[in-house]
Nucleic acid binder design. Structure first.
Lengths: 231, 231
DNA sequence: CGCAGGTTTGATGTGTATCAAACAATGTGG
DNA sequence: CCACATTGTTTGATACACATCAAACCTGCG
């Protein structure tokens, strides 16, 4: 752990997260206010209905933002990837659950701390604004995905999206990766059932577009064809 | 038109829009940079692919944010209501079309103008941040709606949402209102077909939950029962 | 009045949900 | 280390909701 307590110097998202907009000394001061938290797969960061007094930047791992319908079926509203920010900055109570999909590491701030930092550093508000706009865009892409008619297009689209998220390079996706989502979570994300997701993955494998290793491992055999399916 | 050129003093969204965070004199200065624009139903504000050099606050009317799938079917990604902000602040090119659903009036700013205003007035960045967070929340609600299984829940949910949007009061919805959306647009929003939407509305009327006047007019006869359908 | 765009209604097929059971994979205690 | 429980995944048979295709019907407007 470095002098700042958060080790910004070694932080893998130090130049993509919102705090990257700050000057080194400003960030140093912010870092002293925050703290690192780790979550194991399945652990809850925020629970719907909680007093909304914290927020966080994801350093590594993945989070899901969820709600439940009246029958208790989980619906995933958003995914958070490294450098993503989570936490509602203005609402008094949290609307949705935020849960770790994989073991994760986060940089957590109390809302009071963040608000005072925003007051002090105008660049921080702008950086958070930028992140919010990116998040709006991501959420709209999710809507496009869910709006697809046909389960095949939805599943193919999700694979392409996860492949991109798993890749370090922004332009093209990872060729081989592990799904951080269970079948049930994929179903909750796409508005399908577990069985349909399973069958669609089976069909994609049968067509040779992907290969699977165990339940989670995905191998993109023909990424172009997959993307074609999405349209 | 008032001295400021935009008539902020009489603006119906003056204390809900992002600019409401500014001091009167600051707002005055911003107002001089912007201009009022009116759109008739169906007119395009931004087109996908355009250089992204403007943004706007909606004063009255309604907008849709859309994209098209490969078969040319329109998919609605978001609705914008009065006091809502539209325009991507950081992307170089616009990703989606923004089109007027009804005759609308907007307060338009060039991106350069807005960026310099953000530099000058830190409160503006915070206000836009707040709006963005609200928009994220609205978009997530749309995802919840689309994720519903069963066309009945989707259509009922949309009616409840439109009723709220049509109301001036924030707590309960309007009892009677006109849908700003055609059947095709509703279908594009919910991921259904025109025929299914039409049939669902017919079914709701047959059950006495709503009454219809012409193609657009909706009368909420039993709003509680409608909301129950949504869950 | 008559046209065009939008809406409703009907008949039919398909895709996905549902129900059910077998099958890994993972972890636990003896 | 193995038997076992547990959780997640796959596969199958069936039913139903929605899409699709087709045609008639409003509604607003020139």
């Amino acid at each position: 752990m470095s002098a700042g307590g958060l080790g910004c110097a070694e932080c893998p998202v130090r130049d993509r997260a919102a705090c990257s907009a700050l000057e080194p000394q400003e960030r140093e001061e912010l870092a002293r206010a925050g703290r690192i938290r780790t979550l194991k797969r399945g652990e809850t960061l925020f629970a719907a209905g909680d007093r909304n007094d914290a927020c966080a930047t994801l350093i590594e791992g993945a989070l899901k933002v969820t709600s439940f319908d009246s029958q208790g079926v989980e619906r995933i509203l958003a995914l958070v990837h490294p450098s993503g920010f989570t936490g509602e900055l203005f609402a008094p109570f949290t609307h949705h659950d935020v849960v770790a999909l994989t073991d994760s590491r986060l940089c957590v701030f109390s809302r009071a701390q963040l608000e005072s930092a925003i007051e002090r550093y105008p660049a921080l508000a702008q950086a958070l604004l930028r992140r919010s706009q990116e998040e709006i865009h991501e959420t709209r892409e999710l809507i496009e995905l869910m709006g697809r008619r046909g389960a095949a297009g939805k599943v193919a689209g999700l694979l392409v999206a996860m492949s991109r998220a798993a890749s370090t390079s922004p332009c093209h996706g990872a060729q081989s990766f592990d799904l951080p989502l269970t079948r049930g979570e994929i179903a909750g994300l796409l508005g399908l059932t577990i069985e349909t997701v399973s069958r669609q993955l089976g069909a994609l494998e049968a067509k040779g577009l992907i290969a699977r290793h165990g339940a989670r491992g995905i191998d993109m055999r023909q990424p172009r064809q997959l993307e074609a399916l999405v349209d």
